[in-house]
Amino acid sequence: MVSLATPVPAGFTDRHPTAAFLIRRTARMILLLLVLLVLSFAMIHLVPGDPVRAELGPRAPASAVEQRQAELGLDQPLHEQFADYVSGLFTGDLGISSTSKLPVSEVIAERLPDSARLAGIAFVVIMLLSLTIGMGAAVLTKDGRHSGSELAFTTTTGFFATIPEFVLGVALVYFLGVQLQAFPVAYEPGVAAYVLPVAALSIGPIAALSRIVRVETLEVLNADYMRTARSKRLPARLTYLRHALPNLLTSTLTLGGLLLAGLVGGTVLVENVFAWPGLGTTVVESVVAQDYALAQAVMLLLGATVLVINLVVDLILGLVDPRSTIKEL
């Protein structure tokens, strides 16, 4: 039993909390990635019945079934299949898509950029607008001022935050696309085609996030340390930028991370509304058509993207906010 007289030696983790934190988080991500790999690999094998038969239909000849099985590597022992699978990932061989008969890597390489662009633009738009609107609303309604504006803000954002992006997309297609013919409603080269899909993707999240940003900003503005800053009679600019802003960084980063991860699902929906040639339409096809190779690859891609985003956000948070590294896993 250790009495307080005996000093407890400080380990590596106590001396270098940031390094320990980075290692912990990265290790966690690798673990989750492994789980994802196993899950995507196991997908085929968890399908009840014979997956190949399900894909080819009950009347397919045995030779075709065998050939497809060999293609998918299903005739080999399990651990060899997994090894092949993982090594295939490194070489870029993800199998052949049964619906298009093309290599999966080709399909993805062709469609990924359009999805990534859409999501990326939407992300930037959402972050810029929700931060501005949220912080502005907080400063405006601080201490209960302009309660009318507060009510208008809460009602409007509450309304738009509840409309799902595909409904919004349909509405935009109808009003701005069909009625007013202001913007194109399907993919075509040029910037104009991005307007409606980005709007559909962004409006909901902007509404939801600006509410959260406003609440967080108010909390910071009302904190005791802001009162201390005011007691120092610093100029307003310094009070907001130096004292308030850094404390908003943590919640903003966390939100950004969640947002980016959430855009993954939203993009799929919006692409289906606007017939966008991205991965969104491919996702659905692959599941419905039981195209295992493609579904596997898409699942892996989506999952890995979300995991990496979460890791990056965690790491930046850990560096920016010294208190978060102390918290246990």
Binding site: G265, V283, V287, V306
Partner: peptide, 13 residues
């Protein structure tokens, strides 16, 4: 860590 869509794909297959 995994979005709902991912689970939907997995279980959908």
């Amino acid at each position: 860590a995994y979005p709902a869509l991912l689970l939907a794909i997995f279980l959908g297959v």
